[in-house]
């Protein structure tokens, strides 16, 4: 139905008062690419994602998704996934998954149908639909957050440390599920993480941002074979070598 879209971030700068968060960011995300963003705390990763989502206006430069320049929030191309899930506590899993469609004025039947499908995609079909967030584990809550993002059928997924507050075992399962989803749906993904292993395991390329103001410090290619979720990539020497290379880059930057 919709072609996959790339993202062009051109000479993007952003300040908060006297604090410059981002300086001259230049990133081309290819259509269908899985890009990881990593960098020290406070270097502007979240700010960058918010700019791409149109939640923050850029001071200078511009962002183009597909062929449409980002000019404000609510663009239909991209969906956000949050570290703290940002679920409505008073709404059931299904109502949460429907929320994006509700805000966009989709009719009820269509919403329910899309939410059901999205929940099934993330492995939350059946009785979980009626559960409130407080009744779900962190991992399941993030599945709902992902379903909400997918339900509006975006071409781009923007994920801000989506698995950071989830335990290690659940996180690995979610990572594999995300990889499977990504290969099925062919969406462009930009994922912010603090985990070097996560960046290498998931992405095609890792963009390393430097400390404040955030600039593109290095871009690391990750030529690991896919599908990684079935190939036991973590056990390979190449995986270890890439994680170490990323670590060396980050270490030298301090």
């Amino acid at each position: 139905m919709s072609a996959t879209l790339g993202i062009a971030i051109e000479r993007l700068s952003k300040s908060f008062g006297a604090v410059q968060a981002l300086a001259d960011i230049e990133i081309q995300v290819k259509a269908g690419e899985f890009l990881a963003l990593i960098g020290p705390s406070g270097c502007g990763k979240t700010t960058l994602l918010k700019c791409v989502a149109g939640l923050l206006p850029a001071d200078a430069g511009r962002i183009v998704i597909g062929s449409r320049p980002v000019s404000g929030p609510g663009g239909r191309e991209a969906s956000l996934v949050f570290q703290d899930f940002a679920l409505l506590p008073w709404a059931t899993a299904r109502e949460n998954a429907e929320f994006g469609l509700l805000l966009r004025g989709a009719p009820a039947a269509e919403r329910t149908e899309a939410a059901r499908r999205a929940l099934a995609k993330v492995g939350l079909a059946g009785s979980f639909e009626q559960a409130y967030p407080a009744q779900l584990s962190g991992g399941m809550q993030q599945r709902v957050g992902l379903a909400r993002a997918l339900a509006v059928n975006p071409q781009v997924l923007l994920m801000d440390e989506p698995f950071a507050s989830i335990d290690e075992q659940t996180r690995r399962i979610l990572q594999d599920d995300l990889l499977r989803l990504w290969s099925e749906e062919r969406k462009t993904v930009v994922l912010v993480t603090h985990s070097m292993e996560e960046a290498i395991y998931l992405s095609d390329r890792v963009v390393v941002l430097s400390p404040r103001p955030g600039r593109v410090h290095r871009v690391l290619d990750v030529p690991l074979p896919r599908p990684r979720e079935t190939l036991d990539v973590r056990a390979s020497g190449e995986f270890a070598r890439l994680v170490d290379e990323l670590w060396q880059i980050l270490k030298k930057m301090q």
Binding site: A53, G74, L80, L88, L103
Partner: peptide, 24 residues
């Protein structure tokens, strides 16, 4: 504020923000 941000990212109008996020 995070819920407001989430709703804005989905393009919520002021009215929807009020009825769907602030009021509940």
């Amino acid at each position: 504020p995070r819920l407001v941000e989430m709703a804005r990212a989905f393009g919520a109008s002021w009215g929807k923000l009020f009825t769907r996020i602030v009021l509940p």
